[in-house]
């Protein structure tokens, strides 16, 4: 597990590349607890979102297992009417990044490129 300071630095780097970031968290997959969290909208309940997204990731992994898929889950991209949500496994595979951004301010390609670029530094 990366420490909180390193994770917050990681979030800042993404924010400097991407416009419209609403909230970012590093989430422990097992417990759904946040290892680091940063939100730009106080009303966005990042702890709850992180917890439920950990279930989402676990369910996806169960589906993959059921389908006997021998591949790796890299990331999950969720498109809402006004937001993008991106989930990306962090090095070590026990935690993941959860990021929510405004759809009107960015696009998925920029989001993925930035996250993929900076996630390397955490390993």
């Amino acid at each position: 597990m990366a420490n909180e300071k390193a994770l917050l630095d990681f979030f800042s780097k993404i924010e400097s590349d991407v416009n419209g970031v609403i909230a970012t968290a590093a989430v422990d997959l097992e417990s759904g607890m946040t290892l680091a969290a940063k939100t730009n909208r106080p009303e966005f309940d990042l702890a709850a979102a992180s917890a439920y997204n950990s279930e989402l990731v676990k369910q996806k992994m169960k589906i993959m297992k059921t389908l006997n898929l021998k591949c790796v889950l890299e990331d999950m991209l969720i498109t809402l009417s006004d937001q993008f949500h991106l989930i990306k496994f962090l090095p070590g595979g026990t935690s993941f990044l959860y990021l929510a951004a405004e759809r009107s301010s960015t696009n998925l390609a920029i989001l993925r490129i930035s996250v993929n670029k900076h996630v390397q530094a955490l390993s």
Binding site: M1, N3, E4, K5, D28, S31, M33, T34, L35
Partner: peptide
């Protein structure tokens, strides 16, 4: 005193 490593230790304990 800087808060470093605190959250990590806590989450591990939760696990």
């Amino acid at each position: 005193t800087d808060g470093n490593g605190i959250r990590e230790a806590f989450v591990f304990a939760v696990r």
